[in-house]
């Protein structure tokens, strides 16, 4: 009885032994199932064993030997199926089938004349653990740079600038890599890297060279590409930092707005608002922004469906 219980315990504690038992072990003389059956099969109970409850050491030695053989068979099987070993076993965080609500803030980094701060959010649904689809929206606040303020003073020229107002986009995501790192070799943090591509609209507005002049807005189609990395803090929270590059054809105030020669040959004059819009100069604009965000996941917990 005791040996039966011990054998059962061994089987339950080491599920791989079952797999080893089911699959014939290549390269071994004895089939694995025979070894497993040795381990599992209860030894015939003798009348003496019923009388005396002291353990039979010779039996334990046999069991230990059977266990060793079992481990060897399992190891052989593991070696054979090394392809199943993943680089980073057991992801600490699963995203598939979950929704991520991600408020963010951002700052533009590529325009030396005007800086934009953005505040917004992403709403993303993960179709699988690596593919996602979502929407984003953001509102911009502008700040003219120090360099911009010096251009007039140092070069006797003024800059032609647009401000960004707000933007929205449909976004597709792919997670090509994930990993983990040790923080001072004390804590293990899991992270991944995400690539995004999207398309949307961005609303911009002319900043007139002469502040009293009328302004107008543009609405531009804006594809964008992004790369970001995300560190998982809890089952429902991740912190992220990334770069997004928005590309669009923007329209700027014409340089000759106050020095306009009408096509009808009349005297030079300032443009009307409609003429300024018509004669606006187009320029391909890149808006590269650094984002930081916190992602909140719903449902807030997840369950592993696979053993690793």
């Amino acid at each position: 009885m005791k040996r039966l219980a011990f054998g059962l315990f061994l089987v339950l504690a080491n599920p791989r032994s079952l797999a080893a038992a089911e699959a014939p072990a290549a390269g071994t003389e004895e089939p694995a199932d025979e070894k497993a059956s040795e381990a599992e099969a209860p030894a015939p109970e003798s009348p003496e064993a019923k009388k005396d409850e002291l353990p039979d050491l010779s039996d334990e030695v046999k069991e230990a030997a059977a266990e060793k053989e079992e481990v060897a068979a399992t190891a052989t099987t593991a070696r054979r199926s090394w392809e199943d070993i993943v680089v980073v076993p057991r992801k600490a965080f699963l995203k598939g089938g979950r929704v991520e609500l991600q408020p963010f803030s951002a700052i533009s980094i590529n325009d030396t004349m005007i800086r934009h701060y953005a505040f917004g959010g992403d709403l993303t649904y993960y179709l699988t653990d690596v593919f996602s689809v979502g929407v984003e929206g953001q509102y911009f606040i502008k700040e003219r740079s120090e360099r911009e303020s010096l251009v007039g003073f140092q070069f006797n020229r003024v800059t032609t600038l647009n401000r960004f107002k707000y933007a929205g986009a449909l976004v597709f995501g792919y997670v090509p890599g994930y990993g983990k790192f040790g923080l001072f070799n004390k804590y293990v943090v899991h992270w991944d890297v995400t690539l995004n591509a999207g398309i949307g609209l961005i609303w911009t507005e002319i900043i007139p060279v002469f502040p009293d002049d009328a302004t107008w807005g543009n609405r531009n189609i804006s594809p964008h590409f992004a790369i970001s990395t995300r560190a998982f803090v809890t089952d429902w929270l991740a912190l992220s930092i990334g770069l997004r590059d928005y590309i669009f054809l923007d329209k700027f105030e014409p340089l000759n707005r106050h020095d306009y020669n009408p096509p009808d040959g009349s005297a030079t004059r300032a443009m009307t608002l409609q003429e300024a819009k018509t004669n606006a100069t187009s320029s391909l604009t890149q808006n590269i922004m650094v984002f930081v965000s916190a992602g909140f996941y719903l449902p807030p917990s997840f369950q592993y469906k696979k053993p690793r």
Partner: peptide, 14 residues
Amino acid sequence: VPFTGKFSLFGKLF
């Protein structure tokens, strides 16, 4: 160097 670790690319290359 506070952070050290390993990462996988496309689940294969590490």
